[in-house]
């Protein structure tokens, strides 16, 4: 499954309000779900974060979990102008957050495949210093699409 096809422009927020890690996660979750469903997802994501930060270093974090609050794989992306503390692996603050939520059972285990793909794309973004490159959500989706195609070609 193509990652860019899972991303819609209303799920890409390039001016996410900077704040505490929990608040940034909550704001992004609310672009996908509202009310009790959103709070259930936030609770599971924060439990996941307690086990080890999903801040993978160099300014990117990828919070993720499965939750029965969603019926299909859902992705949202947020970028803050002011980096936030995410307790990342390299202790550096984060300005780009990929959020991924999967239903409990997903055909072909798309969740872990997509999660792995996002990690690869995130590494390319940091390697080429592209975190701040996109100016609009459409630009961002085009950027992701390009990186994904290059990664596929290399295989």
């Amino acid at each position: 499954m193509n990652l860019a096809s899972l991303l819609s422009k209303d799920r890409v927020n390039l001016s996410l309000k900077p704040g505490k890690k929990d608040d940034v996660i909550r704001d992004l979750v609310y672009t996908i779900k509202k009310g009790n469903d959103a709070e259930l997802i936030v609770s599971t994501l924060l439990k996941r974060e307690e086990l080890g930060s999903t801040g993978i270093g160099k300014g990117i974090a990828i919070p993720h979990c499965r939750s029965l609050a969603v019926e299909k794989l859902e992705i949202a992306v947020g970028r803050t102008n002011k980096p936030i503390n995410f307790n990342s692996i390299d202790k550096k603050p984060v300005s780009l957050v990929f959020l991924i939520i999967a239903p409990p059972q997903d055909p072909g285990n798309q969740y872990l495949i997509t999660l792995g793909k996002i990690v690869q794309i995130a590494k390319e973004i940091t390697k080429k210093n592209l975190i701040q490159k996109a100016e609009t959500p459409e630009d961002f989706i085009t950027l992701i699409n390009g990186i994904e195609k290059n990664l596929t070609k290399r295989k």
Partner: peptide, 19 residues
Amino acid sequence: DLDNLISDMEEPSYKKIGF
């Protein structure tokens, strides 16, 4: 959701991603 989190943590393909 917590039980699913526990089983994902133990999944070899999850561990391989490298979080």
